[in-house]
């Protein structure tokens, strides 16, 4: 019997997993940790490639005795970067302002007070369903350029108004993120807190919101990248940010048509390099929170 078995297994050795189809599907560690070195390398190559295409086109078009597109970008690099940093600043301030306001609005939208809830819901829907550019114009022309309170004059330069203009849609979207996250928690959490005599306010701040933070971070980061990219719209209303500076640089270089693509391509690249890692990080967090739910 034994010899028979051994001869059989010698002819037909048992595979390591007799029926791999039946094994639970598992992602390998390499697949699960999202931005692997390989992926990052691939993206890096893409960016460099894009840069080369832009530079190549520009170089082919630049005439003799003229500064190449790369040369122009290098020459104006500090100025363009200061413009880009201004975009970043506007986006960060709008995000901060909009997040705080949106948190309040979102909490209002789930309040037990009917009037407060309806007002908050109305504001949320109104600002969520308006084009961002319209809201920007709205902020620009509705807010005076200065406020005088008790004899002190507080100036409101255009860029501050732009910050408020971008904070409005952030607020409305944040409100929905908060409302959605709170609603997504199982009702048992509320019941347990209630039966332990926690007040509604305590339940919200100590039990519900701490659990919601995790759920809110990915959509909140996503919202941030949208704001960061939207800040270039401020150039339309006269804020001197990156896009405005690019137009000025272009004019200063004699308005050469061959510089248009490289200059705007450079702006695209700056935003891509800034926003894409945030996007990757968001996706990684989403995946992680999903796995640990």
């Amino acid at each position: 019997m034994t010899s028979h078995m051994s001869s059989l297994s010698a002819v037909n050795p048992a595979p390591a997993n007799p029926m791999p189809v039946l094994l639970p599907f598992q992602l390998g560690a390499r697949q699960r940790r999202f931005p692997t070195w390989r992926a990052t390398l691939l993206h890096g190559c893409g960016i460099v490639g894009l840069g080369l295409v832009i530079a190549g086109t520009a170089h082919a078009q630049s005439g003799p005795g003229q500064l190449s597109a790369i040369g122009v970008i290098i020459k104006w690099f500090p100025l363009l970067m200061s413009g880009f940093l201004f975009n970043v600043l506007i986006s960060l301030l709008s995000m901060a302002l909009g997040t705080v306001a949106g948190l309040g609005l979102g909490l209002g939208a789930i309040s037990h007070n009917t009037l407060l809830r309806q007002v908050a819901w109305g504001i949320t829907q109104f600002f969520r369903n308006a084009p961002w550019l319209v809201l920007l114009f709205f902020a620009m022309f509705m807010i005076p350029f200065q406020f005088t309170i008790f004899g002190t004059t507080i100036p409101f330069p255009d860029w501050v108004k732009a910050v408020i203009g971008f904070a409005l849609p952030v607020m409305a979207n944040m409100s929905e993120i908060v409302r959605g996250a709170v609603k997504s928690l199982p009702s048992g959490q509320w019941e347990a807190a209630e039966s332990l005599a926690f007040s509604r306010r305590q339940t919200m701040w100590m039990i519900i919101l701490p659990q919601c933070v995790k759920r809110m971070i990915p959509p909140w980061m996503n919202l941030y990248t949208l704001v960061a990219m939207a800040t270039v719209q401020a150039s339309i209303v006269g804020v001197t940010e990156m896009l405005t500076l690019i137009a000025q640089v272009h004019a200063a270089e004699g308005g050469r048509p061959d510089l248009l693509a490289p200059l705007y391509g450079f702006a695209m690249l700056c935003f891509f390099i800034y926003c894409y890692p945030i996007e990757l990080w968001t996706r990684r967090l989403e995946r992680r929170f999903h796995l640990h739910q």
Partner: peptide, 18 residues
């Protein structure tokens, strides 16, 4: 409700721990 709920404890089917 506070006075009531400190007298009455409750345990749920789904545990509902935080």
């Amino acid at each position: 409700k506070l006075a009531l709920r400190r007298k009455v404890g409750m345990v749920f089917q789904q545990y509902n721990l935080f």
